[in-house]
Design a protein around this nucleic acid. Structure first.
Length: 260
DNA sequence: ATGACATATGAGATATGA
């Protein structure tokens, strides 16, 4: 079972890219972020024609998350549980039943948080605290789950080509990194690091500006975190780097985890 | 370089991203 996460930076602008990648990669579940459209405007039909079910949690202009899946989504939750006052569409979750058992999948678009020292950064940290509390609650169920999405966190210097350039950025602040680390300390597994160890050069985002892609000036900010029961099912995890060579690409590429 | 690109909104310039 292949579960992917991809920040598409507008689903309408990226529709052809997304359809092409789905046909080539054939994932079972796809967590999308930054739809930048309301639910009614999401191009569901195009994905349904490829055999996917579609659930969305969108809003006008900004944010927005979705889950595409070959299996029927069950128990769909929109909005991060316990964070009900959040007016921004950044979380959707669904459960999938398989012969070998269920798996819960969440599509997460964590706040960027820039500039540091503003309410935006405080909002990011609060959002991460809510996510921590919810992950802790989910863990008590002792079920396989995958929290996949754009975390907007560079976990370690190994996850950036030029870590010094991100020193003042919200994505690389000690407070952001500590909260990401706290998720791992709960017992969650970073699927890419589990499979690839401390390998350098594993990036999921390259800025559109200043030839970042051509210079491979990337960062790893899109992550799939697995519960212990999901980690036991982990077969492989990889980054779909070549998607960045598409015409009019997203600035992010998909991350895929394959479970038994 | 409070920039470079890209996108949405809406019809020019601004907000947001990372």
């Amino acid at each position: 079972m292949k579960i992917a996460t991809w920040n598409v930076n507008s689903i309408k602008a990226r529709l052809e890219n997304a359809l092409a990648w789905l046909k080539a990669a054939d994932p079972d579940v796809v967590c999308l972020q930054e739809l930048k459209c309301e639910d009614d405007a999401f191009p569901s039909l195009a994905f349904e024609e490829l055999g996917y079910n579609v659930v969305t949690h969108g809003q006008k202009t900004y944010n927005g998350v979705a889950i595409l899946s070959k299996r029927k989504p069950e128990d769909v939750r929109r909005g991060l549980p316990g964070n009900d006052e959040d007016g921004q569409a950044r979380y959707i979750e669904a459960v999938f039943s398989r012969k070998s058992g269920m798996v819960r999948v969440a599509s997460i678009y964590l706040p960027n948080g820039n500039p540091v020292g503003t309410e935006k950064f405080a909002y990011k940290l609060r959002w991460m605290d809510h996510l921590h509390a919810y992950a802790k609650a989910l863990l008590t169920l002792e079920e396989p789950f995958v929290l996949a999405g754009d975390y907007n966190v560079i976990p370690t210097p190994l996850d950036a080509k030029n870590p010094d350039a991100w020193k003042t950025d919200a994505l690389f602040q000690p407070e952001s990194r500590a909260r990401f680390g706290a998720l791992l300390n709960l017992g969650l597994t970073d699927a890419i690091r589990q499979v690839h160890g401390d390998a350098p050069g594993l990036y999921t985002f390259w800025d559109y500006q200043a030839g970042a892609w051509q210079r491979n000036n990337g960062i790893r900010i899109d992550h799939a975190l697995l519960s212990p029961q999901a980690a036991d099912l982990l077969k492989d995890a990889w980054i779909e780097r070549e998607v960045r060579t598409q015409e009019r690409p997203s600035d992010h590429v998909p991350v895929v985890v394959e479970l038994k």
